[in-house]
């Protein structure tokens, strides 16, 4: 017995693979139907967006160790800027850009922190958005990946393990560095070393010709979890000078355009113990402080 079926011609199927489509991050060729870059795992929708709009976004990287608060900061920032009363207006480019905001806010609303960002680059969230400053008519396109702290640490120790990180740092026009103020306040120095490694790696990636000139990229050094370390809010720069002397000196020597900020999202945290599970740190309420200011500073420098 014969049945009729519709079979696409092989030539049509092959055509999808035959048309090369470069990834916006690493520039390697992918197929038109690919959702993630097969080389660096960046979402191909960024490349599609760029081709449609004709505007290449500025890449802003967020550096910091695992647990420093990168995801919470970014998710809260995106949520705050997408509300009406914000100094900058933010519009997401594509549905994938909202995942970070959605995941973070859902978790915080349940009085939990979002789960740890996996090291695998194909699991990261990316924020591709248009930012409009009411004081400036020109909107600015930004691409902010939420990279995993562990992956950054591995890349800093063993370069080229994560090509996407190398590519992003190389293209980065603005940098936000997250440092856990709570840990720094109690004398911990592991984060300081990691951030110093990352900043050194960042300057290493600049081409030789550019390396002769001082690095003028805006770098916002954000002391996170400052809500539990109140003196950090009073004077973030002084706090960094006292508690993170190595990082302070590195920034003084190599970065011409850096500024210290303090931020906090939770008003208070505690440990929650649930029967049959590990104890987890939970926020008892959501009171964002110092979230928008570093970003506004960074965007205004990028606009110059």
């Amino acid at each position: 017995m014969r049945t009729r079926t519709a079979m696409p011609l092989d030539s049509v199927r092959l055509a999808q693979f035959a048309v090369p489509f470069p990834c916006h991050i690493c520039g390697s060729e992918n197929t038109l139907a690919a959702t993630l870059c097969q080389h660096c795992s960046a979402p191909m929708s960024i490349a599609h967006q760029v081709r449609e709009t004709g505007i290449a976004p500025h890449v802003v990287t967020v550096l910091g160790s695992s647990g420093a608060g990168k995801t919470v900061y970014l998710g809260t920032l995106l949520d705050m800027l997408s509300r009406e009363r914000a100094p900058l207006q933010l519009t997401s480019r594509g549905a994938y850009s909202l995942s970070l905001q959605q995941n973070t806010m859902s978790a915080l609303a349940r009085c939990e922190f979002p789960s740890k960002t996996p090291s695998e680059a194909d699991c990261w969230n990316w924020a591709h958005c248009q930012v409009r400053d009411p004081a400036d008519r020109r909107p600015i396109e930004l691409l902010v990946p939420d990279m995993a702290g562990e992956a950054m640490q591995t890349e800093a120790d063993h370069p080229l393990t994560f090509p996407v990180i190398r590519q992003l740092l190389g293209r980065s026009e603005g940098v936000m560095v997250m440092i856990d103020a709570l840990e720094a306040g109690t004398g911990g120095s592991s984060q300081e070393f990691l951030v110093m490694k990352m900043l050194s790696y960042l300057s290493q990636l600049r081409t030789d010709r550019r390396r002769k000139k001082p690095d003028t990229r805006p770098v916002a050094l954000i002391l996170t979890k400052a809500d539990q370390c109140e003196d950090c809010f009073e004077d973030p720069s002084g706090f960094a000078r006292r508690r993170l002397p190595g990082l302070w000196k590195l920034c003084q020597q190599h970065l011409q355009n850096c500024h210290y900020f303090a931020s906090g999202v939770a008003g208070c945290c505690a440990w929650q113990v649930e029967f049959g599970r590990q104890r987890v740190r939970v926020p008892l309420r959501l009171e964002p402080r110092g979230i928008v200011e570093p970003f506004v500073w960074l965007v205004r420098h990028l606009q110059k």
Partner: peptide, 23 residues
């Protein structure tokens, strides 16, 4: 009882929200 809170010292209760309560 299945879900308890641990802190260095017992926390006191707060009510009502504040000017910076986001949610």
């Amino acid at each position: 009882p299945s879900r308890s809170i641990q802190a260095p010292q017992p926390l006191k209760s707060l009510r009502g929200g504040a000017f910076d309560t986001y949610l």
